[in-house]
Amino acid sequence: MPPAAARPARTVRQPLVLLCGLAVLALCCALSLALGSRPVPLATVLDALTGSAHGGDADVVTGLRVPRTVIGLVVGAALGAAGAVAQGVTRNPLASPTTLGINAGASFAVVTAIFAFHCSHPLQYVWFAVTGAAGAAVLAYAMARRSGALDPVRLALGGTVLTAVLASWTSALMLASHRTLDEARFWLAGSLSGRGLDVLRPVLPLILLGAVLALAVTPSLNALALGDESAQALGVPVARIRVLGGLAVVLLAAGAVAVAGPVAFIGLAAPHLVRPLLGGDHRWLVPGCFLTGGILLLAADVLGRVVARPSEIEVGIVTAFLGAPLLALLARKAAR
């Protein structure tokens, strides 16, 4: 048990870290509003937000970049928290909506909706995304069961296999129909561009419900980290917490995928970046991942706009390019 003098310092440090995270998030929002195919001065951005400026750059800020920034905040926060809860529920540091096949399940279901039912708007395919994400989560969990217990290694391997299978089925559907290919390929790259706030409205209730569930299970996730038997001895209903935590991950990931496409590695990276700063207490870790997920996604989106100016690189491509080395490093660390 830490000395009494150490506990208050740690308690003070965690809120300070979150406040610093809020400041970094505000900076990322400012950069997202100011940078793009053509830079806009921060003074003009502020005037546009307060209604003091109109036309030209002000219309670009309010009409294009504000919705893009809001969507990036919501999607990034959802993916970051989903990764933290997934790792807590499974006790697997490599767990995330991507590595567990949840993103792939949602993507396959959405492409199926586009192929079979000519869906073209999140309001039409959001429930397909939720169903696909939930189905993938159940399959990954079933493959990871061994003698009634959850095997973290089998869970990671099962999620990887499931992702590969679903990705191949998704590609087959796209190749079978030029219309599906045209409508889905841009969405599958993972992008925030060309989306208005109307795209966010249908999925926002799901993401909010997932966020509430994620925060509600955080005390029990601390007990799960001790092992199932220890958690049960402490009075934690392990099966119910796993179901609620899994439902939170599904809702957060499915809502994010329905809006922006399958953006990879945000859910994997956020907990590993936050844990050294806030510790392993999920009551601090999950809120920290909400902030960090938004920071990572907005930073990746800004980077994609800057490096290929006047064009841009889709945010899903940027996160995959930066996240693949991180996954390799984490896998090597886990193997040691």
Rank of each mutant, 00 (worst) to 15 (best):
G255H: 07
A248S: 15
V250M: 06
L297T: 14
G288L: 02
G267W: 05
L303I: 13
G294P: 06
A264C: 10
I295H: 10
L278D: 12
F290A: 09
W284Q: 10
D301E: 01
H282R: 11
D281P: 03
V259I: 14
P271N: 13
G304R: 10
C289S: 10
G267R: 13
A256K: 14
L278R: 05
R275C: 01
A270K: 10
V259R: 13
L298E: 03
A253G: 14
A258S: 15
L244Y: 05
P287A: 02
L277Q: 14
A299K: 03
A256D: 05
H272M: 05
G293C: 10
G304A: 01
G261R: 13
R275I: 00
L278P: 01
V307S: 12
V306Y: 07
L278E: 08
I295D: 00
V243S: 03
A299S: 15
P271H: 04
F265K: 11
A248E: 09
L303N: 00
A254H: 04
A260H: 03
L291N: 12
L298D: 10
V250Y: 13
L244D: 00
L268G: 08
A253W: 12
G294L: 01
F290S: 01
A264L: 13
P287T: 02
V306H: 03
L251H: 07
G261Q: 07
L285A: 00
A270V: 06
G293P: 10
G304D: 01
A256R: 14
A300Y: 14
A248T: 12
P287K: 13
L273D: 03
L298N: 11
V243N: 01
P276V: 02
H272A: 06
L298G: 02
P271C: 12
R305H: 04
V302D: 11
A299H: 06
F265M: 03
G261W: 02
G245K: 06
V257G: 00
A248C: 01
R305T: 04
R305Q: 15
I266F: 09
G246W: 02
F265L: 08
A248W: 04
F290K: 05
G280E: 14
F290C: 00
G294N: 11
A260D: 05
A254M: 08
L296E: 14
W284H: 15
V286M: 01
L251Y: 07
V250P: 04
G279I: 07
P276F: 03
L298F: 06
V306W: 14
A300W: 13
R275F: 05
V243H: 07
A248L: 06
G246V: 08
L268T: 04
A260W: 02
V257A: 00
P276T: 07
D301N: 07
V286E: 12
L285P: 01
P262W: 10
W284Y: 15
A256T: 08
G245P: 01
P271M: 12
V249M: 13
L291K: 08
A260S: 15
L251G: 06
G246I: 09
C289N: 14
G288F: 09
G261D: 02
I295W: 11
L297S: 11
A260G: 06
